[in-house]
Structure formats: structure tokens, C-alpha cells
Design a protein around this nucleic acid. Structure first.
Lengths: 137, 137
DNA sequence: ATATGTTATGTAATAATATAACACAAATAA
DNA sequence: TTATTTGTGTTATATTATTACATAACATAT
């Protein structure tokens, strides 16, 4: 099992499991609320777990939403370039990875002497399901 | 002159001029602080001006920093896809536009039935100047 | 010119997101 | 064992953003 490869602490596991169970990204405070029953009490407990999980590559941060989502490909916990298409209707985030984009960006970086550490690509719009759902209003 | 094409109100002008004069992105509250001398008093005054300027395409929002920057190409105030390479040393943001990336992303959207409204691409790292500056430490 | 609709303004209060600082406990490694 | 690192729990606070409401400025159509 992918997510067992790394030893996680209690808080880290609670946060990761919750994110994996969620069908949409969650804010740090939404995570906290859900985990109060498990004994979490302060924002910092969540933020620290998130920092670690992001560092490992098991969680991604959606910059444009201040929200967090479990990596869709936890097995390949490469920290490679992934992007998200975020539906503004249902709030779900579709993760994608595109090597072509990665290549173009690294080309740009090379040309401009920019040393890239991390990249965030976020598309906002409406997902296929929600477009269909909206059609017959 | 590019920025004269649209009629801006006093607050919008103040915010835009400040961002244009700044060599790096600014937070809303940094903007507010700078404009207290001009009579601005509340965050909302800044946020409202920013919303308008972003809508017009004269300002971009850096999602990963909660900061705002004047568009580098104010003449072509197309709302097309632009990206930023943000230097974590000096804080400056280099704006770029890449039609290849736009194409790949719109291809992905087409294939996945996603209706895209806006896209954010942000690369974090170290700019050429700061790499040079750090070399001889 | 005046009524109407729209857009912008000013202000206060508050919500939502994130971090600093400190003391302590658990796991790891020397 | 001792030292070191890593994680925990807690309080307080910093930073970013919005809600709600009242008023003013401006356009334009009668």
C-alpha cells in the first residue's frame, strides 16, 4: 500500500486519512473541525501535519483556494509538477500531470536563468459533470 | 498611454500607480499602509480597487503569495494566460506569457470536458540576479 | 432638472487563514 | 546514556479577506 511507505505520526495520519476520504479539497480549519473529535485542538497541529505531508508529497496545497488535497497518485510520491483543474461549482479538484508543460516551463527557466524549486498550475472553471447538471435549468 | 484607456476612480488610480511604481508584488495591507497618506483608511478600499483592476486586466493576483502586481503588458490588456516566476530571495515576480502552455492546457480542458475560466501558473525559485549574488558568499 | 439605476465610497465589525514563542515529550542516533 | 532531532500541545497574535450597512457620485432617460 502506497501510503504506508513512510512512517507517519498520529496527527499526520489523521490529517492524511481525512483528506483521502474527502472528495474535495479542505481548508486547514475545516480539517481541524473534523478532527476535534480525535483530540486535535489548535490550528498549528493541522498546519504542522500538512507541512510534513506536503514535504513528503502526499498532500498538495491549492494556492488559489488556501486548501489542501490528498495527492491523487500517492504511490509515485515524486514532487514533480502537477496541476489542478478546480471546479467552482462543486469544489472538486482534478489533479493532472503533464510532462509537456513541465518541459516548457523548465525551458523558460533555463532561458531566463531562473532556478525553479516548485511550480503551481491551477485552472478555475466548471467540470464536465457540473456543466451537464447546469444544462437543464 | 496604455493605462489611460480606461477611466479609473481615485482609489483605483492610487492603487495602480503604487503597484506600477513598486518593483515587487505588494500585499493588500502593504498597499493600504502606503496609501494612508492619500486618505485610504480601510482594507476594503484597497480590495475593491484591486478587484476592479484585476477585472480590467491591469493587475494580477499572485495566488501563492496573497500579493498583487501591476501587469507587465498593460497595453495588451487581454486577460490571456500569463505566468509568474517568483524569486524567493528578492521577492520580485517576472511575468511571462506562453502560448504553448495555453494551448496544452486548453487541450487538456477539451479532452476532459472542463470549461476553463482562468488559469494561474506560478513558479517559485531563485532569479538569475540572486543566484549570481549568492555565488560569492 | 429630476428621477432612476448603477457604480463607487467610507466605516465598523468580524471572519478566515497562518505563524510565533514557549515548554515539554517521544523517537533516533551517537 | 546522553545528545539531537522531531513532534506535540498550548496560548497568543499576525495576516489576509469579507459582510453589512449607509451614503455619495455619476450616467442617462425621461
Amino acid at each position: 500500500m502506497a501510503t504506508a511507505e513512510v512512517k507517519l505520526t498520529k496527527n499526520q495520519r489523521l490529517v492524511l486519512d481525512l483528506l483521502c476520504a474527502s472528495d474535495a479539497p479542505m481548508s486547514a480549519y475545516a480539517i481541524l473541525d473534523q478532527l476535534r473529535a480525535e483530540g486535535l485542538r489548535a490550528p498549528l497541529q493541522v498546519y504542522r501535519a500538512l507541512d510534513k505531508l506536503i514535504g513528503i508529497g502526499l498532500v498538495h496545497r491549492l494556492e488559489s483556494m488556501n486548501a489542501f488535497v490528498a495527492c491523487a497518485h500517492p504511490s509515485c510520491h515524486s514532487l514533480e509538477m502537477v496541476g489542478f483543474a478546480i471546479c467552482e461549482e462543486c469544489g472538486k479538484a482534478l489533479e493532472f500531470a503533464d510532462s509537456d508543460i513541465a518541459e516548457i516551463l523548465s525551458e523558460w527557466a533555463g532561458t531566463n536563468g531562473f532556478l525553479a524549486k516548485s511550480t503551481s498550475i491551477e485552472i478555475k472553471g466548471t467540470c464536465a459533470a457540473c456543466q451537464t447538471a447546469t444544462e437543464h435549468l
